Amino acid sequence: MCANFKPITLAQLKSLNLPEITFEYPDEVYPNYDLPLLFASVQGLEWRKVGFGMVPKWAEDKSIALKTYNARNETLFQKPTFLNSISKCKFGVIPVSEFYESKYIENKPQRWGVRRKDGQAFYIAALYEICKQGDEIIRSSSMITMDAIDHEMMKDFHEPGDVKRSVIIIPHDRLQEWLTWRSPDISSFIHGFPVEEFECTHVPKIKIEKISPQLNFFD
């Protein structure tokens, strides 16, 4: 299940003729980090800074996002966390440069990155929510996932014997259709992405050595 990814870059944003993003966001996103979510309003396409991981109105705090960053399409109406969003058709996309999954080689997990071969960003289907905790307004989102047991690329990820899942990627030519979809029945969008347009490679996580404050003083 996707828990780490790189959001859209400035160059990719311009290439797709998307609106300017007026807020900062990290180079890599993990659960409970902020990310740029694209959705449709009466003014057209708009960006919102949202947290990665759904925070429903009944949650006691934002830590629930560590468990709600992926939403299975098969159980959206069975999970209280996602029921309000799917019922009200709160659809958006998370534009991504690359996302990461674990592939087990000789029973050891390796981080692999999935990206488009042409270098363009791609759109991951998402639900979003807005709620209030005390005086704080919280905007959050979750990636919608699907079964991947038969997907040529995604079936090779996750621990052997574990359930195989994949994010749902909205094709570029269906972006507007998805963002303006007004039915909770999203079955027409649940398709595995075309393998021939994507590639995956081993992407080891970079280890950052800690430098003492004393050494930093001389930088």
Rank of each mutant, 00 (worst) to 15 (best):
P80D: 09
K79H: 07
T81W: 00
T9W: 06
M54E: 08
I8T: 08
F217A: 13
A121R: 00
K67C: 00
V203P: 01
E197G: 03
E101M: 10
P36K: 07
N32M: 11
C89V: 02
F91P: 01
L10M: 09
C131K: 03
L127T: 10
L76A: 09
V55M: 05
I149D: 15
N32Q: 13
G44M: 04
F217V: 01
I186C: 08
N73T: 08
T201S: 09
R139E: 14
A65C: 11
R48G: 06
V93S: 09
D150Y: 04
F52R: 04
S87W: 00
I138S: 02
S87Y: 02
V114N: 00
R111T: 15
D150T: 14
D135L: 13
V55W: 02
Q214I: 12
L18E: 07
S41M: 05
V29G: 03
V203N: 07
Y100F: 15
S97C: 05
N32P: 00
Y25N: 02
C89W: 02
G161L: 08
T180Q: 14
L76E: 10
I206Y: 04
E74N: 07
Y69L: 06
E177F: 00
W178S: 05
Y123Q: 03
I8M: 10
V163A: 14
F5H: 03
S63Y: 06
W178T: 09
Y33T: 02
M153Y: 11
S212P: 05
C131Y: 03
D185N: 15
N32L: 12
L66D: 08
S87T: 15
D61R: 07
F23E: 06
I130G: 05
M1V: 14
I130L: 13
I208A: 08
I64Y: 02
N216T: 07
V96A: 04
K210D: 12
N17C: 11
S188M: 14
Q133D: 07
R48Y: 01
I105V: 15
P26M: 07
A121N: 05
R116K: 15
F91D: 04
D156K: 12
E24R: 09
N216C: 10
T75C: 04
I105M: 06
Y30A: 05
F122C: 04
P194G: 11
F198L: 12
T145V: 12
H172K: 12
M146K: 07
R182N: 15
K205Q: 14
T22W: 03
I149R: 11
K62L: 10
S41H: 01
G134H: 08
M146Y: 00
K6R: 14
N107K: 15
P204A: 01
P19Y: 06
E152F: 06
H151W: 14
F77L: 14
I169R: 02
T201C: 05
K90H: 13
P194M: 08
Q12E: 13
K6W: 08
A65I: 06
I170D: 07
H191M: 09
I105P: 11
S187Y: 00
M1D: 08
S141C: 15
I137C: 04
K164H: 07
